[in-house]
Design a protein around this nucleic acid. Sequence first.
DNA 1: ATGAAAGCGCTAACAA
DNA 2: TTGTTAGCGCTTTCAT
Lengths: 326, 326
Amino acid sequence: MAKIKDVAEAAGVSPSTVSRVLCNGPVSDKVRKRVEAAMAELDYRPNMAARRLRSQHTDTIGLIVSDIRNPFFTAVSRAVEDEAYRNGLRVILCNTDENPDKEAMYLRLMQEERVTGVIFAPTRQTVGEIDPEALGFPVVMIDRASPDGSADAVVLDNRRAAAQLVTHLLSNGYRDIGGLFGNTSSTGMERHAGFVEAMQQAGLAAPARFAAPSVEAAEQAVSQWLAATPRPQALLVSNGVLLLGAVRALKAAGLRWPEDMALVGFDNDVWTDLLGDGLTVIEQPVGEIGRSAMAMLMERLEAPERSPRSVVLQGKLVVRGSSRAR
Amino acid sequence: MAKIKDVAEAAGVSPSTVSRVLCNGPVSDKVRKRVEAAMAELDYRPNMAARRLRSQHTDTIGLIVSDIRNPFFTAVSRAVEDEAYRNGLRVILCNTDENPDKEAMYLRLMQEERVTGVIFAPTRQTVGEIDPEALGFPVVMIDRASPDGSADAVVLDNRRAAAQLVTHLLSNGYRDIGGLFGNTSSTGMERHAGFVEAMQQAGLAAPARFAAPSVEAAEQAVSQWLAATPRPQALLVSNGVLLLGAVRALKAAGLRWPEDMALVGFDNDVWTDLLGDGLTVIEQPVGEIGRSAMAMLMERLEAPERSPRSVVLQGKLVVRGSSRAR
DNA sequence: ATGAAAGCGCTAACAA
DNA sequence: TTGTTAGCGCTTTCAT
């Protein structure tokens, strides 16, 4: 494989001149043409490892999520990657499965790669312990954030979104509403808080349950809940993965919505409008979350000392049949 | 950030000894302990760029798919990444949107990164033109493959799977069966071939249409088809993305399955069993595809000269209500 | 605008 | 088992 020296010899110039052509440095048009011809001739490809070592910047960012198979993260990841490649950055993607050990491992990996920055959806355990100073690169949290706002973050207005769902259910005549929340993320906690708040304001109890962030765990949790009597008139579920589990549980129990139980949740996943008259959900601006996170990371790189910011995005209530008044 | 020289000084040894500790080379236990203590003390992180440049191996593989948001590729990617990280390899993920220009660009990027190998789902246009020799790294195709078997590949037995769906429909009494296929992948072509073959064997015409690989394109194509008269008794759809479009078209037209039209397809996506009595599909072994591709890549690295192989996996027919005899 | 020289941080060959 | 030396391929001074 040709190296810069070979190109230099073929073009009759010095290696530094070839390097300048590569980096759009000051080179006369005539020489540039010659060098480019030599590059094409030799099928030259710059060696990124060498370039990174010498230049001390990797143009690489890390993206750490819990599971790329969660459609929310799939969509966010795609947006991040598009935006990154458009800016000449490479992305290293990691799945933590909400496992703090894996998180620590991948954070370490990011240090070894000398990444420019990291976009990170941490578990509840890790969220408060991230120290960009110690890590050596800036971190932008997505989806989850430490409550004290001590780190850059792009999040949904979770309390408000949960409250919106409650308000919607209340206005459709539901009173006895249960909530199912993920137990590993700050997001689940905040949505729970919003749920409780809104219910209390209406003078109602706010029965809640928590589940691990998997379809199976949610299905089991909801199945148990359905077996209890009396069952709630409506169920609010805190994300798309759990919502799928809830749907399975209702189907398994032979229950229909909203007749037997209203069902609302988060994440406007592709299947949510296909079931009966559709599921009422809060849609998250997934593309915007990814793009904002990238933008925030770039800004932070330009202004390392600026105080931390949170971008709080609003969800959009998508009303469908599953919460119809009955 | 501490470098190897700092660790060496702190531990009172030479840099090479530190390097040996890093790479599990021959070091006395006593010295190793000292060095590890120094590393911990200084919070040392090896610099991957330097290591790669010097050692001439990157321990990095490329994964090039059309769109990570396609659940098939989401699942395959996750399997590939798990397997890669388990083997100490890093993954660079790229989305081509079936765009040959992007494919070429990312292939170039892989060369610049000096990747160890690439796992690649090429478009139909690119599939025959991949030359690992010229590229400088081995390539394992997934999902799609050149018909001549000239490259390593992990694919589904597409013809057989399509034929299986046809046979199933025939045995349930359907005769007038249409097929909708993706127009950008060899996969679509093969499934089409299997469809035609099976229909012809039954002495039936095999009306087929083709669509770009998006939900919207499929929805439009199927809507048009439904407007035509007479409409087919059953529709076979060649992947999960198109299948979703078909479902939307049927819903929009107020048609139900199997009563108005039977519907079968590929990819056992999470929502396929939720609709009515469920959609009959061919389930692809997505995890196995990812793991096999990784395994194949590793084998190829060990035996560069061995002749190309194809791993052909069988799909699994999952029978649900959408193809019920009527 | 171009070239010469140095060195990024690490590993590998060789020597001891 | 350990140290010394050289150099991976590139960019970046500094000089011209």
